[in-house]
Design a protein around this nucleic acid. Structure first.
Length: 419
DNA sequence: TCTGGGGTCCTAGGACCC
DNA sequence: TCTGGGGTCCTAGGACCC
């Protein structure tokens, strides 16, 4: 029988920061989202202070000040690089690895004869610790959903030393009965509320619920989750992200923005980032959507949000083309008199740049050679060394990042120095 | 004053066709 | 009185994940 291991990095962003700054050990640390908005990673010490996941920074600030919590802005260059290293260690194994997110991977475990799955997982854990330095927890089960649940136990109970195999559990029923529906992978707040209304509060009750009813209430997604809890694997690798279907670039502003001129700069900047991502993956886009919105949390201000989607005449990865279209769309949906909080661009209907069709009529303006030169300069000398004037220079609207650590592993001038 | 960003999938309903 | 049926495609909105 097939078994899955879910390898999940503990407090990943905090662990990355700690690798390069030992003063962060043994004290509460949090990492903030973009724009220093919410708390998205917490050390164990911070969790113990009752600081919630996703909590707005300004709300938690008084408690954190009182307890001397170290606050950091997110440093995705660092986390992305450390993630790659962790995944590299897993890829060395004689097993199939599905990278699921920046800090998680499913490993389809090989059939092992000379030792237990638990021992195998424990050695994975040691290797990652030794080669990368990041602590991980590993949950094992016959389905991805059960492996996820096992992982919670591995994290929560110190006695398991970071590895928990659900098949070694004395009573799976007891374990499921002690898990809330909301702890199950695939059951979010809304689904948990719906289930609660029908008296279903535990993973065990969810497992044993009526199929037709589940299908009707939670769609096939909910039904699949229940089936997985029964030990039948039906959420497959194809449901785990593989080929990109869309690319988004959007940011909240550091301060509210009202003028069209500033919004145009911002959307041009995000279009530039999206186009870079597109080219880095060898893709071209056929559809472009621009979104614009005010701050939905501020009930005192007039609210407005809009979006426009356009199909491009020619699929493209050319920054100039995308940027011009993005500005045109923005002008189309912009209304004066509002305080905007966010704008963004979504590229969709992505296909491989290799199979690009040349236009039947008119000129081909794609210029991949020019874009390649642009990307090379920026890779060599740093992002935005060469940029389009439309994206602006001062960028007064740009997001807050007040507490950012250096790009220790991805910028020459920011390497850690041993002294 | 201050509330992230980037993804995926599913469904219902409307438009349109024969 | 009574107004087809079945199919496809598209989109918006809602749900989930980390």
């Amino acid at each position: 029988m097939k078994n899955f291991a879910l390898v999940d990095c503990n407090n990943f962003y905090v662990s990355c920061e700690r690798l390069f700054d030992p003063s962060l050990w043994h004290r509460p640390v949090v990492v903030l989202s973009n724009n220093d908005g919410c708390i998205i990673a917490r050390s164990e010490e911070a969790k113990m202070l009752g600081i919630g996941m996703g909590e707005p920074y300004f709300k938690a600030e008084p408690v954190m000040k009182r307890h001397g919590v170290k606050v950091l802005s997110s440093n995705y260059a660092l986390y992305g690089d450390m993630s790659r290293r962790v995944m590299d260690v897993l890829q060395q194994l004689e097993a199939e690895v599905e990278v699921y997110s920046i800090d998680e991977a499913f490993v389809v475990l090989p059939v092992i004869i000379d030792r237990s799955l638990k021992a195998y997982a424990a050695s994975m854990r040691r290797l990652i610790r030794q080669y990368v330095g990041i602590p991980v927890s590993i949950g094992i089960g016959p389905t991805r959903t059960l492996a996820k649940l096992a992982n919670r136990l591995a994290k929560k109970e110190a006695k398991y030393q970071g590895v928990f195999d659900i098949s070694e559990c004395e009573s799976v029923e007891t374990l499921l009965a002690e898990s809330a529906t909301g702890d199950v992978w695939g059951i979010g707040q809304r689904y948990a509320e719906k289930l609660h209304k029908h008296g279903i509060n535990t993973a065990l009750q969810l497992r044993d619920a009526n199929d037709a009813w589940l299908r009707k209430t939670l769609t096939v997604a909910g039904l699949r989750t229940a089936i997985e809890l029964r030990g039948i694997s039906c959420i497959g690798a194809q449901d785990v992200p593989s080929a990109r279907k869309s690319i988004v670039s959007s940011r909240s502003f550091g301060k509210p923005v009202s003028s069209l001129e500033e919004l145009k700069e911002a959307i041009a900047s995000y279009a530039t980032i999206a186009a870079e991502k597109l080219r880095a993956q060898g893709l071209i886009a056929s559809s472009l959507q621009v979104v614009l919105s005010t701050n939905r949390f501020n009930k005192h201000l007039p609210q407005y949000s809009a979006s426009q989607t356009v199909n491009l005449a020619q699929p493209t990865a050319n920054t100039a083309t995308l940027l011009c279209q993005a500005i045109t769309s923005l002008e189309h949906i912009y209304k004066p008199g509002y305080q905007y909080q966010k704008t963004g661009i979504l590229l969709a209907e992505l296909t491989s740049a290799d199979s690009r069709q040349l236009p039947l009529f008119g000129q081909d303006i794609e210029r991949p050679d020019l874009m390649q030169a642009l990307d090379r300069v920026n890779a060599r000398w740093g992002r935005n060394t060469l940029q389009f004037a439309a994206a602006g220079l001062a960028k007064p609207w740009s997001m807050n990042q007040r507490y950012k650590s250096p790009a220790y592993t991805s910028q020459w001038d920011q390497l850690p120095v041993a002294s």
